[in-house]
């Protein structure tokens, strides 16, 4: 069982959700993390186009009203077990946008966040550190040490 999870955890596929960010975090994690200097693929990661293929989901942005339901729906489409990483300060607190009339964040009002990567925007190195942390949590979840989302909390889709 342990060996099995050890193998599984070497293939974290990433999916990126932009929940209304200023695109700084997205630039850093979607493109910069792929280039030779950082190369997220060396961790076995791959960005996938379909939420159904994903293991680790990276969320950026303060969660605007207009994307809220779409973000939650996409998040639910990602098969269990999954790990959620909030990238940037916006998903944590809303950042400078907090209090705006169309801001619905912080994101953990709706989605259980496993790893927070603060920064505005965070450097690619810290994003990759966040992915590594997420890998660790994923491993714990596979081994049954950490509970998954299903039994613990449900997303409240309004």
């Amino acid at each position: 069982m342990n060996l099995f999870s050890d193998i599984v955890v070497r293939s974290p596929w990433l999916y990126r959700i932009n929940a209304g960010s200023c695109n700084g975090c997205d630039v850093e994690l979607a493109t910069t993390a792929c280039i030779p200097r950082y190369d997220v693929e060396r961790l076995g990661c791959r960005y996938c186009g379909s939420p159904r293929h994903a293991d680790i989901v990276l969320i950026t942005g303060p969660l605007t009203l207009r994307v809220r339901d779409k973000v939650l729906r996409v998040w639910q489409e990602i098969p269990e077990p999954k790990v959620t990483v909030a990238v940037g300060i916006c998903p944590i607190s809303g950042g400078v946008f907090r209090g705006g009339h169309s801001i619905e964040g912080p994101i953990d009002r709706y989605i259980p966040v496993d790893v927070n990567v603060p920064g505005c925007p965070p450097r690619p190195q810290s994003i990759m550190e966040g992915v590594l942390l997420a890998k660790k949590i994923w491993l714990d979840r596979l081994n049954g040490i950490a509970p998954g989302h299903k039994e613990e909390r449900h997303v409240s889709l309004p």
């Binding site: 944590i92 607190s93 809303g94 907090r98 209090g99 705006g100 009339h101 964040g105 912080p106 953990d108 009002r109 259980p112 966040v113 927070n116």
Partner: peptide
């Protein structure tokens, strides 16, 4: 407008 923005979870 500016309510406590970070949740308790964090």
């Amino acid at each position: 407008m500016v309510h406590g923005a970070a949740t308790r979870n964090l």
